[in-house]
Amino acid sequence: MMSVSFDAVIRLLGSLGRFALTSLDRMGDATTLSLSSLALLFRRPWQGQHIVLQLYALGVGSFIIIAITGAFTGMVLALQGYYTLAKFGSESLLGAGVALSIIRELGPVLGALMLIGRAGSSITAEIGIMRVTEQVDALEMMAINPRARVLLPRIIATTIALPILVTMFDIIGLASGYVIGVELLGVNGGAYIGEMISKVMLQDLYAGWVKAVGFGFIIGVICTYMGYRAEPTTEGVAAATTKAVVAASVGVLIMNYVLTSFFL
């Protein structure tokens, strides 16, 4: 009995160690891959046109979903915040509460998660399919560096697009929070705006934007990496897409904690 459970523990520790090692290995691989791609940014040929195309597909294409998420987040925050603050008779703080939660936390995090769902998964699937159908090799044969042509523009595009999308999320969220708080729940409009303006500091805005840039970057890195290193089969691409969404979401949440502790 004793030896069996001891064996099980050893085996568990072994698989844990193996998991940690492969994770580290993959992180290192992802870092080298994305850094070697990014190093090509200032190398000729200039990939500006492809960055623009990816900004269109990933950034502009995600605008609607971000707008909807932002609107409903602002609305529910106003409702919940009002419910809680009314207990203390501090409804006037509603504007500040809604604005700070959106700008510091929910804008960047929810924006990032929506971008992963809308654009991240499609990045992985697209690159994975390019691998399966040998399009990556075809580019290589036509003397086009796939890292510069396929990976780089997508990483740059998510890094640029997310702060912009988060800004739109913030503005739409604040506006819809105002509509619910002031028009529907009857909080004094002047107090709502006044508290919002006096409580939100420039550093809160910076914190939100820095987060957005960081999240956009790791979304680009993780999703391109998963697609590029996907096993070149149909199942491999499907598995890679799932893995990319999970890894990118977890990555965003961990990075969110690190950055938040940094900015407080």
Partner: peptide, 29 residues
Amino acid sequence: RARMGMVFQYSALLNSLNVYDNVAFTLHE
């Protein structure tokens, strides 16, 4: 590579481009 060409097993045409742009790809690039 300018002196090499390759025809892949699954053709590997760039599926975002039409036939003309696929054939013209290296010329454009």
